[in-house]
Design a protein around this nucleic acid. Structure first.
Length: 494
RNA sequence: GACAAGAUGGCUGAAAGGUUAAGGCAACGGACUGCAAAUCCGUUUUUUAUGAGUUCGAAUCUCAUUCUUGUCUCCA
């Protein structure tokens, strides 16, 4: 029997603002759409957290036995740079600055995105569609919305008519809690130069000016699609009119997701998404991450330790994932060197225990209720993906494993098997942690250090503490730590 | 200004009305060590921003205040 049948999953739905029992449209299958990156610069750490949260969601759904189609788009066109009338495509602007083709920008940062997500051990989505690959579909959708009378053309551009949509009994604002009428009154003064009927209306198609490089022919003008459209188009194309889960960052709730609902609903007549999930923001040292203030770090820099202003050393992928998973995806998380150092210790402890597990003895009695513990792990994850509670449970197992090692506890062969499997599942399959500390040392390095360990051992036997300590301390300074144990000395590279 | 999320120990971060408020880090004590480090075992800390209220019972619900973050223009 599939695991999802015995573990009822609950998901916090941003639309209803409450936890709901997860029921899929089609038995055993999940359609999940997550708003992907706009590829006009390197993916930054905040992006990474959002995508990592949904990577974890994807992983857990798969583990529960669902057949998941996970669609995460690449936005390679369509973002307006400034106010609609002066609008300029974000990608095109970058291209002009760097004097290269727009698709060159797209290619460069798409490759970067894939490199980073691969490094951070993300599972690739099932489909990764691009906006530019779906221009035809987007034009079709605009036509459909116009046919319903919910969009209008002005000077070659097409806008979604929010007022009309709402007067038809719909609710633009259903997700973000915004009130359109209020918003109209509160809107900053319009100079009357906007071609939109109402400031709340948003672009479905924008006419491109002469200088614009990225443009496509359409019935209305040579231009480009509005930013919100691609997600509606690609989610319905690959997942149908009603999808199970739609995810993204909290900041996309408005206007992006609100517009998506309006567009899709205008076409299909149904609520397009059953469960809206929003991942919260990541702060850096208690402050918003922003390139302009320098309060910013790239995911790559964490792995190399190259950003000395923020980090004292490099951290492994496992540590970073562990750090992010220690917080709930709906909580704001504060990234700092101190927090990462703390996570590293905890992570290493966990990995140590996973290693010990392989060499444990079994008896005919268990002093720990393994099946109850296993259930607690599933309960935590099934309660809106509560990874912090899961990790707390994992440490309960760590404690037990260490007691086993010290012969202060016992376990049956059967329970040991369950413990191993469960730990493997949650640590590696669901949380996606990787034990990356080991492979850094080469054979040659190992030989050299082993030699020094041998020399130090001789020094210690001769009670030459000065030499012994010199070897130990100077190795530590270059990042090699010696660990004296009962069975001799081992080392680790930091 | 409007809308949204939040404020929990030395740090990080769970718990969403019901006995002693998870877990990690740090600190302290112990084991180990030539001494350390690493590792292991154990112990300790918060009464939940502030002030009211609802309740037999509140971190959890309500109101006010202060502060933080996000959105309202492109953002995960």
């Amino acid at each position: 029997m599939e695991l999802y049948k015995e573990n009822q999953l609950k998901i916090y739905n941003s639309l209803s603002k409450s936890k709901e029992i997860f029921k899929t449209v089609t038995e055993g299958r999940v359609g999940m759409y997550v708003c992907g990156p706009t590829v006009y610069s390197n993916v930054h750490l905040g992006n990474l957290r959002t995508f990592m949260s949904f990577d974890m969601v994807f992983r857990y759904l798969l583990h529960l036995g669902y057949k998941v189609r996970y669609v995460r788009n690449i936005t390679d066109a369509g973002h307006l740079e400034s106010d609609a009338d002066e609008g300029e495509d974000k990608i095109a602007k970058k291209a002009r600055l760097e004097e290269i083709e727009p698709m060159e920008v797209v290619q460069r940062y798409t490759v970067n995105f894939h490199e980073v997500t691969a490094k951070y051990n993300f599972l690739p989505p099932s489909i990764e569609p691009t906006a530019t690959g779906h221009i035809v579909e987007q034009i079709e959708m605009i036509k459909e919305i116009m046919d319903k009378g919910l969009a209008y053309e002005v000077n070659g551009s097409v806008y979604f008519d929010v007022i009309k949509y709402n007067s038809d009994g719909n609710n633009y604002g259903i997700l973000s809690g915004r009130n359109v009428e209020d918003a109209i009154h509160n809107t900053r003064a319009l100079d009357g130069q906007s071609e939109k009927r109402n400031p709340q209306d948003f672009a479905l198609w924008k006419k491109a000016d002469e200088r614009h490089i990225m443009k496509w022919p359409s019935p209305w003008s040579d231009g480009f699609p509005g930013w919100h459209l691609e997600c509606s188009v690609m989610s319905s194309k690959y997942l149908g009119d009603q999808i199970d889960i739609h995810g993204g960052g909290m900041d996309l709730k408005f206007p992006h997701h609100e517009c998506e609902i309006a567009q899709s609903h205008a076409c299909s007549g149904v609520q397009p998404v059953n469960y809206w999930m929003h991942a919260n923001m990541l702060l850096l040292n208690g402050q918003k991450m922003a390139k302009s203030t320098g309060n910013n770090i790239l995911p790559e820099e964490i792995l190399t330790g190259s950003n000395k202003e923020i980090l004292s050393k490099a951290f492994g992928v496992g540590v970073v994932r562990f750090f992010i998973m220690q917080a709930h995806y709906r909580s704001i998380l504060d990234f700092s060197n101190e927090a990462l150092l703390a996570s590293e210790k905890g992570f290493n402890k966990l990995m140590e225990a996973v290693g010990i597990l392989k060499e444990l003895k079994v008896t005919e009695k268990s002093t720990f209720n393994v099946s109850e513990w296993k259930q607690k792990c599933y309960d935590a994850m099934s309660d809106d993906f509560n990874t912090p509670i899961l990790i707390a449970n994992l440490f309960e197992a760590v404690k037990f494993i260490n007691q086993l090692k010290d012969d202060k506890a016992t376990i049956t062969a059967e329970d040991l098997e369950v413990l191993k499997t469960t730990l493997d599942v949650f640590v590696f399959d669901v949380l996606g942690l990787v034990n990356d500390g080991k492979e850094q040392s080469s054979d040659k390095l190992e030989g050299a250090v082993e030699l020094l360990i041998k020399l130090r051992k001789e020094a210690r036997e001769n009670k030459d503490w000065a030499l012994s300590d010199q070897i130990r301390d100077e190795l530590l300074e270059i990042g090699i730590q010696l660990k004296d144990g009962r069975e001799g000395t081992s080392f680790s590279v930091n």
